[in-house]
């Protein structure tokens, strides 16, 4: 059964979808790892195509953030994507720019899906950064984004820190402590990025499988060679 009792009250729905957002750091320090970012996106796409039943429930958007947030792929059915999005390495690490973008983007996307007659599960954001935020005021838009009282489309955020991203920062970014991960000390950053995308794919497939009307609970897979950030805080 689907966990959720209001669907039978609504006009006929075309399906139940999970909007998912991959938000990756495009700051200059990621420059040596652009190849892993690209191959990670490719494996994500392949992984979803290999699980068509789960992929049917997922709509995925890709954003890169640096000085600002830029959309690399709008919310899409990955089964029909022909050209993979590319991350573009740029300047600084403005977390706030990413959260401000999501604050306007996610409610708009959810509204659009509902206008298209879909029921919508709580969106999920997979946030990847290799550094500490260079902006001081990121907590304001983050709070607005994640406050379920003021933002009825508030997403779950899964944060993954690599390189110099600190565990306490990842815990602040994630919406639950168990959603915050950091790579183990000394981990190869390129491999950590690959592991992030593997876990992201597995999480989306598992969540897509579980959603059926089975569960709308997010199912999360821990990336290999990452551990819970809270264990370091």
């Amino acid at each position: 059964m689907r966990l959720g009792s209001k669907g039978d009250q609504m006009p006929e729905k075309r399906g139940v979808l999970l909007p998912a957002y991959v938000v990756a750091d495009e700051s200059a320090s990621m420059s040596p790892h652009q190849g892993e970012l690209a191959s990670g996106l490719a494996s994500l796409c392949e992984g979803l195509r290999a699980e068509p039943m789960a992929a049917a429930r997922i709509r995925l958007a890709v954003l890169g953030f640096s000085d600002d947030a830029q959309l690399r792929q709008e919310l899409s059915d990955m089964r029909s994507i022909e050209v993979l999005p590319q991350f573009i390495i740029r300047g600084i690490t403005s977390y706030g720019s990413a959260f401000r973008d999501l604050l306007s983007r996610i409610p708009r996307d959810v509204d659009q899906l509902k206008q298209d007659n879909y029921a919508v599960n709580r969106p999920v954001v997979f946030f990847l950064s290799d550094g500490q935020p260079t902006d001081r005021d990121w907590r304001g838009p983050h709070r607005q984004l994640t406050d379920r009282e003021s933002n009825r489309s508030a997403p779950n955020i899964i944060s993954c820190g690599i390189g110099s991203a600190r565990a306490d920062t990842m815990v602040e970014v994630a919406t639950r402590q168990e959603f915050a991960f950091v790579a183990v000390a000394g981990a190869d950053i390129g491999r950590a990025i690959s592991n992030f995308f593997q876990a992201l794919t597995a999480s989306l497939v598992s969540s897509g499988q579980a959603m059926a009307s089975g569960q709308s609970t997010l199912i999360l897979e821990k990336p290999n060679e990452f551990h819970l950030a809270i264990d370091e805080v």
């Binding site: 966990l3 959720g4 009792s5 209001k6 609504m10 919508v120 009825r152 489309s153 569960q215 609970t217």
Partner: peptide, 12 residues
């Protein structure tokens, strides 16, 4: 007016 924006995961 009890329609939710997002699908709930609560069930009795």
């Amino acid at each position: 007016g009890d329609e939710e924006v997002l699908v709930s995961n609560e069930v009795t």
